[in-house]
Design a protein around this nucleic acid. Structure first.
Lengths: 149, 149
DNA sequence: TCAATCTCAATGCAATTGCATCAAAAACAG
DNA sequence: CTGTTTTTGATGCAATTGCATTGAGATTGA
């Protein structure tokens, strides 16, 4: 009698537990730094950074969605809030009336920059100080295997 | 003029990005499996598992909180829902009327077991199939460094 | 002893997320 | 063409989360 044909190995179970805990722990620490500096959540930063990297500071919502693993309905409303704050603007997509382009404003760029000064320092503190560059590279390589497929 | 004294190294930034993405990707896949099997979110499972491991299937809310990285107010309401479903029951804590003990019911144990058959298989599929045991061990060790302190 | 402080859990209310669906426009199939 | 299907983004509503506060009960300290 097989108890469970799909039982994962203990080391795999442990790795999964650690992945959850490490992500939450570090995310919690980083978001706490951002919040105490008076900033919005990392989602805002992610959107701003993606836009800044895009051609002419513009991307379609779909592209942002994919780049940041957003849900369509969440992103739609997040963009509402960001537009209200003057960080992005929606402009028509040439040649397709369904679509739109999201463009980062100067204010948005400025916020991205200000957030990075806190965010980057936090990454450094909570990750850079804990891993050597070599270890960081190993970690990246292992995590990549999980993302693939 | 220093651009940013705290700028993390590229490999550290990459590791952080991968950590977020890997956790979300794998979590998304696993939760999708659970949902398609008709189960609640992993939070429910986490609570049930912690309780099952506790002495006589009982823990205080604080202990669950710490074990599962829950927020106090979220756990309080999660326990409401789980109690309504008959998965746990609240019992008085001997000698301290502020506190309580959460006890897993037989129904709760049964649900934990049924969820594990799906959850374990998913862990195996989305992690076990992607990493050797040795790699899983390396990953755990690296992630542990991030959690510590 | 007893007032001040701290711990534990709950809750009102606002913000966010998840789900299902919609309307509009484009792409496709015959 | 024209009817059908697909893509894109928005939204109503329910569930969950976050924040601040509360109330009850322990604990502490003069």
């Amino acid at each position: 009698m097989q108890e469970s044909p799909q039982e994962p190995s203990p080391s795999v179970i442990r790795a999964w537990g650690r992945l959850i805990r490490a992500e939450r722990t570090v995310m919690g620490r980083i978001e706490a730094e951002l919040k105490s500096a008076g900033f919005q959540s990392l989602h805002w930063y992610d959107v701003l950074l993606e836009l800044k990297r895009g051609p002419e500071g513009r991307l379609t919502p779909r592209e942002i969605e994919e780049a940041g693993l957003f849900e369509q309905y969440n992103l739609s409303r997040l963009l509402d809030r960001m537009e209200n704050e003057g960080l992005v603007r929606r402009i028509p997509f040439p040649g397709d009336k369904r679509r739109q382009l999201i463009e980062i404003t100067e204010e948005g760029k400025a916020l991205q920059w200000r957030m990075w000064s806190v965010y980057g320092a936090a990454i450094n503190r909570f990750i850079g100080a804990k891993l050597t560059d070599k270890e960081a590279g190993q970690l990246s390589a292992l995590l990549l295997k999980l993302i693939q497929e």
